[in-house]
Amino acid sequence: MKSVYYCTLFLLLFALMQWGISCTKNDDDKGKLQSIEFPKPAGWPDPVYDFASNPLTKEGVALGKKLFFDGRLSKDGNFPCVSCHQPFAAFATYEHDLSHGFNDQFTTRNAPGLFNLAWHSNFHHDGGITHLDLQPLAPITAPNEMAETIENVLNKLNADADYQKEFAKVFGSPEITTATMTKALSQYMLMLVSSNSKYDQVKRGQAQFDVNQEAGYKIFQEKKCNSCHAEPLFTNLEFMSNGLPLNPAFNDVGRMRITGSKADSLKFKVPSLRNIALTFPYMHDGRFWNLEDVYQHYNQTIPLSSVERSLLTEFLKTLTDEKMISDPFLTQ
């Protein structure tokens, strides 16, 4: 009797599962997908990205990577996302204060490294973009960057049978839309999680700082660098003015450009210090070539001796995540 009961229960469950599956949209087009659990590092805060609206899959991430590396997202084919966000520079532009865009134009700000984006609720140095999915639309349509229209990009992608097949598999419909294109890009960018630097290994008890790194970490804490560059993201994600004067070449007032509030004048989003050894030059307009310039700028508020500067630099170098920048799934 009991076994009949279990049998019935099992059948009922099975039927429910079938029903659940057949209820998903366009299940005919949607292939079998390998879902990925977001690799949230232990002890980190919860990410803010709504993964329920865009569940990560291996195929979705691969599709996003293909788009990220595809020049067709730009007007003349020369400026894929990766042209300014280079894997070996932690997805910033290596050794460039400003990046290059369409028709030999410069960008007006320093390209930030792309990692740990799932914890950000706004993007750009001024936070003007309110969602990761919306972010790619800005460089795609900026006349000095990729210089293309969203409509043209969608037309180019939809003309490619391979893309249509891949979008059908990941999103259930072969037609590539603004929403599915940007969701695929987000899936890829979300997977750029930087949490395997030496600093992280030390925190997990898998490695030890050498004496200089240890002394540098102490300076980092004692001088309260972490009041803005808060661990573990090494940014508090807020908008701050660090005393940089207005750069007359751009008249970039930062956050005030978005809020219109004078109180936000010259405030920019606090950048993460992760991968800082790879992301020079520094500041929103790349005006400081190296860390020495940065220490000099902070000399008024946080004076450091030359020994302290060297030790702090030794610590900051432990924030480089070699694993992320060389992961073949993400970078090739």
Partner: peptide, 16 residues
């Protein structure tokens, strides 16, 4: 999506 799809040109991309 639909009428609100950003490709319709009624969307500021740099200041969402």
């Amino acid at each position: 999506s639909g009428a609100l799809d950003p490709y319709k040109g009624m969307f500021w991309t740099w200041n969402s």
